[in-house]
Design a protein around this nucleic acid. Structure first.
Lengths: 247, 247
DNA sequence: CGGACACTTCGGCGGCGGCCGAACCGTGGC
DNA sequence: GCCACGGTTCGGCCGCCGCCGAAGTGTCCG
């Protein structure tokens, strides 16, 4: 069996290695980049600089550090550079860190537009490749309540859940590498929503079918009338919950 | 249902919050403390200072920071102070970070005793409250091979696994909060071992029954002759694998 | 009540690293 | 070929923070 194979190099992780990784997130500007990148899309240095309120040169330096540290990967196209999170593992790292961060009272948005953006994100957004926010958590809750998913003995889809997905024509690619179902702690709701292959398939299908739509270039999404119908019919979610003004 | 309850405070996590948490791990000395504390036991400032090679006053300052940040909790007894990781979530955070840290070639232990300590830890150790190291990974492998645990559709114990535990008189307390079975990436083997309630029960039982024994005050453990018999009979692990000199 | 001991507080030092603006480099458009 | 623009490099400034040793506090023990 595999454990009797060649003895591994036996690398001993030391504090400084761990610290070097943590340092990549231990700066306000870099952390702001990470939270923005959690939507799984690629951003340019200029976008990130503006988003975080720093000079482009500063953003460049941070991005170099983060790429060198393995947190991000980059792709160059002409005079543009695109960066995104290196992989799912790094996204999970950031999520885990965010979940562990103490809740502090919201810093009372200073401008009207910042406030509306904040509300839009809290309502519904993508988190890497799945759904988050009030809507994401409500979907997870409803699916749990209807026994479509099961958490107690390891997160998994129930037979009913598989039928449910099939009825909606949602295809979940099986992968040995990626877990089918994974709870992901929502950092606005502080409760889990659906991640893993199922969460990704659900979100992708919803975008394809026009059940949800991205708002501008942010990771906020809106539930369309068509989406409201589907979610009401299939999960019993109220129209009120699915409307951003609804709080 | 619960999501229609009172609207949460809607705290928006900002970069600086995330950074503040990450900063707790972003220092070589603090990270060294964390790795030591991963065994789940309580340490004193003096022990940690010596372990990390810094002055006691320095350790005190770090520990104050870490406690204030919610990473550690402390308990005072007379003139002693004991610190340990605040909870399972913080332990997972550290493990996730350690797993994401790039593998660097082992820094070639400088002293003989450091080398033997390193070897002992790589062989078998506790990781928070479960087993890690070559032995921990081998147990996870063997249990997977014998279909006692199942990972593909969400980690869980199979019916055969439940019988197996019952035969060994290992009782796994059911908890809604803690997952029964969780893979925990081993940072010397870079492969998963068993965590969660099952991993903890197994490790606790093994210590109770004298199948394994702590080595001195470190988190390294030794498999006793009794333990070797049990692991050979129940999982088919070779005596060679269970002996520390064996590499 | 004196001394040993665990721990803490404080002042001061030194280095690291985040920030910016200015100059520079390549690409693509006109 | 020129210009606009995204991105990068570099030098220099400043603040933060990790470190120590010395002095102080509290606890336990004889």
């Amino acid at each position: 069996m595999s454990t009797t194979g060649p003895v591994p190099a036996d690398p001993t992780l030391v504090g400084s290695d761990l610290a070097a990784m943590a340092r990549l997130l231990a700066d306000g500007t870099r952390a702001t980049f990470c939270l923005a990148l959690l939507d799984g899309r690629a951003w340019t240095p200029t976008e990130l600089a503006r988003h975080a309120g720093v000079a482009p040169s500063t953003a460049t330096e941070h991005l170099n550090t983060m790429v060198a540290g393995g947190l991000l990967v980059q792709e160059r196209q002409g005079r543009h550079r695109y960066v995104r999170l290196a992989d799912q593992q790094m996204a999970e790292l950031i999520e885990t860190m965010a979940a562990a961060a103490p809740v502090r009272p919201a810093p009372a948005a200073r401008t009207l537009s910042a406030d509306s953006r904040r509300r839009a994100l809290a309502h519904a957004r993508t988190c890497y490749d799945h759904l988050a926010g009030r809507v994401g958590v409500a979907i997870a809750d409803a699916m749990t309540e209807r026994a479509l998913v099961e958490w107690e003995h390891g997160p998994r889809l129930t037979p009913g859940g598989e039928r449910w997905l099939a009825e909606l024509a949602i295809d979940v690619p099986a992968s040995a590498k990626r877990p089918a179902l994974r709870p992901c702690l929502d950092w606005t709701e502080r409760r889990p929503h659906l991640a893993g292959a199922v969460g990704a398939a659900l979100c992708g299908h919803a975008l394809d079918q026009g059940w949800i739509r991205r708002v501008g270039s942010s990771r906020a999404v809106l539930v369309t009338p068509a989406g409201r119908d589907v979610l009401a019919a299939r999960l019993g979610l109220s129209a009120e919950l699915l409307t951003p003004a609804g709080n």
